[in-house]
Amino acid sequence: MVKFLYRLLWFVGLFLLQVLFLNRIHWFGVATPFLYIYFILTLDHNMSRSQLMLWAFFLGLAIDIFSNTFGVHAAACTLTAFIRPSVLRMFFIREEKEIYEPGMRAMGSSVFFYYVLACTLIHHTMVFLLEFFSFSHMGLLLLHIGASTLLTVLLIMIVELVRHNR
């Protein structure tokens, strides 16, 4: 129960940060950080796919409602949550049975970085693909995905560092 409330607090906190603050950032007209996916990336490693997807879907939907993107983030989040266990297994296998939260403490910073990079890239690709909904501006699309991914990963690493060193 305490864990659930703690999780809900992160949910609301990241959601507010995203819609009130980060959505306003458009560096060089291309880069917008979507830090809120930090929530999806750090849910417990043993959480079932279905649970992951439900959390992610509702977070994405909430973001959609407040940024007028109609399901773009819900779709991207669901996808990210769906493939998260596979990505996690790809980078990191731990034999112990104990539950852990993906992060620097459990995985080490470089492994965590690759994991975050892969998930962020998938999420952002989905977001911008759905937003552009065409390949006719391929260069611009790639620029948006690349620049935003960099910014998001940077922010996630900073947040994780701050939490980790506490």
Binding site: S48, R49, S50, M53, L54, F57, G60, L61, D64, F70, G71, V72, A74, A75, T78, L79, F82, L130
Partner: peptide, 21 residues
């Protein structure tokens, strides 16, 4: 395969929202 079904359901909802905006 229930997580596949859930995945398709949630993506379906998202895309319906997107296309019916």
């Amino acid at each position: 395969q229930k997580h596949w079904l859930l995945f398709l359901l949630l993506e379906g909802i998202s895309l319906v929202l997107l296309f019916s905006r």
